[in-house]
């Protein structure tokens, strides 16, 4: 047996997968080949180091995060319409916000644009016209805080993972 042949069976040698004849030939080779003897000892060292690599554990909230994802998946399967609404909630809130801004602007504009010079009103005065409540109906004013809430909710980072585009892409890759 030469060094090349020994290399080819080094794993079988370590794992005792050789028949009597092969093992004898291998033993004869390493008895007189220092290089292969060292290679074998080194390999055994590496493999034992790999077996004792420190293990890592999932974080303590791993299971609860997973089960939250499972719940969302289940809801999505059972109530697809609700899920679609939820999925597009950002778009819906954004549309609502745009509408609200448009309505408010229109209202402010119509209430201050009676005199011709109002078109050139400075910003402060412009704000004053609506800010004192005289120019805007209560309904519009009252809806302002809820609009702020909607926006805050929509801009919160999504920690769910189910809507995370990365996750979706990964799942898609597996499905392919």
């Amino acid at each position: 047996m030469d060094c090349y042949s020994f290399e080819k069976i080094i794993s079988d040698y370590i794992e005792s997968n050789l028949n009597v004849k092969e093992r004898q030939e291998a033993n004869e080779h390493i008895a007189h080949c220092k290089r292969c003897r060292e290679k074998l000892a080194d390999m055994i060292n590496i493999l034992s180091a790999m077996k004792t690599l420190p293990c890592c554990q999932t974080r303590s909230d791993f299971e609860s995060r997973l089960m939250a994802r499972v719940d969302r998946y289940r809801q999505q399967k059972e109530h697809p319409f609700v899920h679609i609404l939820h999925h597009y909630s950002r778009a819906i809130s954004a549309a609502a916000a745009v509408l609200l801004i448009a309505a408010t602007s229109l209202f402010v504009y119509t209430s201050v644009s009676v005199p011709a010079e109002s078109a050139t009103l400075p910003a402060a005065e412009f704000r004053g016209a609506g800010g004192n409540g005289s120019g805007l109906p209560a309904a519009v004013l009252n809806s302002a805080p809820s609009f702020a809430n909607t926006k805050a909710e929509a801009s919160q980072p999504d920690t769910s993972g189910a809507e995370n585009p990365d996750y979706q892409r990964r799942i898609k890759m597996v499905n392919e």
């Binding site: 890592c56 999932t58 974080r59 994802r69 499972v70 996750y167 990964r170 799942i171 597996v174």
Partner: peptide, 24 residues
């Protein structure tokens, strides 16, 4: 996690992959 962590050499990403695996 032990398998994926050694494969990716990144704990965060490995945990995500294990989540996805168990979701799958």
């Amino acid at each position: 996690l032990n398998f994926v962590f050694r494969y990716l050499n990144s704990y965060e990403q490995a945990e995500d992959v294990v989540q996805d695996t168990l979701m799958k």
